[in-house]
Amino acid sequence: MRLKIHKFLVAFVVVSALMLSGCSTPPVNPSSGSPTSTATEANAATEVTTTATNAEAATQTTSVAQNNSEIIPGMNDLPKLEGKATVVMTVKGSPITIEVDGTNAPITAGNFVDLVQRGVYDGLSFHRVVRQPSPFVVQGGDPKGNGTGGFIDQATGTERRIPLEIKPQDADAPIYGKTFKEAGVTKPPVLTHKLGAVAMARSQLPNSASSQFYFALANIGFLDGDYAVFGYVTDGMPIVDKIQQGDKIESAKVTSGAENLKNGGK
């Protein structure tokens, strides 16, 4: 009975601490049983969460293939990746190769490839690295460098946000705007949080991801159905394992599949 109570408390803490820094943070490492972020991250959460509350949230679950309604304003105008692409990210002078999967996450993958082509990630730092008490995530892609920022589209003057996009196994299209639990989905996603997964960070609002992403340092399947995986590290995982907080992305380049990017990348 005591063991069951402990497991319940651990799960409760994980769910309660899903987003600690606005549009930037995946959950804490569940093995600790308590949040692993710093007080600075917690303070940032209050500020950004308040801002994010004003953003328009999803009102229904849909898919691009099923109808043309928009979960968030401008959703249908977002970049989309029709197929796959390869991105090589250089950190510490060494390449990290990422296979980006637009087949199963077209908007999430398209957003990432578009930002790479724009040079948004060049020079940005990894602001969050969690390895204790066990490997969890390396997170970067924030133009502000502190976990509270996103990509500001110069054409609109506003932050680009993308809908939560997760495709269940055996489904024809992704679920948009809701977690699997909210949508009543019981099957696992096609793209899971296995070691080397690359996924988008967001606030507690499902449609708040922008430019921040994270590498999974272990199999962290408890995030499946809550966060959008859009690719995997296919080469260079030892480099990811050596990344420290403050290390910079020296460059990020699309080396193949750029032709699969549609409605964006200009």
Rank of each mutant, 00 (worst) to 15 (best):
M1N: 06
R2N: 10
K4Q: 11
I5A: 15
V10C: 13
F12T: 12
V14M: 13
V14P: 02
V14E: 15
A17Q: 13
A17G: 15
S21F: 01
S21A: 15
S21E: 12
C23Y: 02
S24A: 15
P26S: 12
V28C: 14
N29L: 05
P30V: 05
P30F: 07
S32F: 13
P35C: 11
S37N: 14
T40M: 12
A42K: 12
A45V: 03
A45Q: 12
T49Y: 04
T51L: 14
A52I: 13
T53I: 04
N54Y: 04
T62L: 10
Q66M: 11
N67M: 02
N67T: 05
S69H: 08
I72P: 06
N76K: 09
L78N: 10
K80V: 14
K80H: 03
A85Y: 02
T86M: 13
T86D: 13
V87N: 04
T90Y: 03
T90A: 09
V91E: 01
G93S: 05
I96E: 06
T97P: 02
T103S: 10
T103A: 10
N104R: 05
N104G: 07
I107C: 07
I107W: 01
T108M: 09
N111I: 00
F112R: 08
V116A: 12
Q117C: 01
R118P: 00
V120H: 15
D122Q: 11
G123Y: 05
R131A: 08
R131Q: 12
Q132K: 15
P133C: 12
P135I: 08
V137W: 10
V138W: 08
V138P: 10
G140M: 03
G140Y: 00
D142Q: 10
D142S: 13
P143T: 03
P143E: 05
K144A: 11
N146D: 15
G149M: 04
G150T: 07
F151D: 11
D153L: 04
D153T: 04
A155I: 02
E159R: 14
E165P: 02
K167Q: 13
P168K: 06
P168M: 06
D170M: 09
A171S: 15
P174S: 13
I175Q: 14
Y176F: 15
K178Y: 13
F180P: 11
V185A: 04
V185L: 03
T186A: 09
K187Q: 12
P188V: 01
T192Q: 15
A197M: 02
V198T: 04
M200A: 13
M200C: 09
S203H: 08
Q204N: 11
Q204P: 00
Q204K: 07
L205Q: 14
P206F: 04
N207G: 06
Y214E: 09
A218R: 07
I220C: 06
G221I: 00
L223P: 01
Y227F: 14
V229T: 06
V233L: 02
T234A: 04
G236F: 03
M237K: 03
P238C: 07
P238E: 09
V240N: 09
I243N: 04
I243G: 06
Q245T: 13
G246R: 05
D247M: 05
I249G: 05
I249L: 04
K253V: 10
T255I: 13
S256W: 00
S256V: 01
A258F: 01
E259C: 02
N260D: 01
L261P: 00
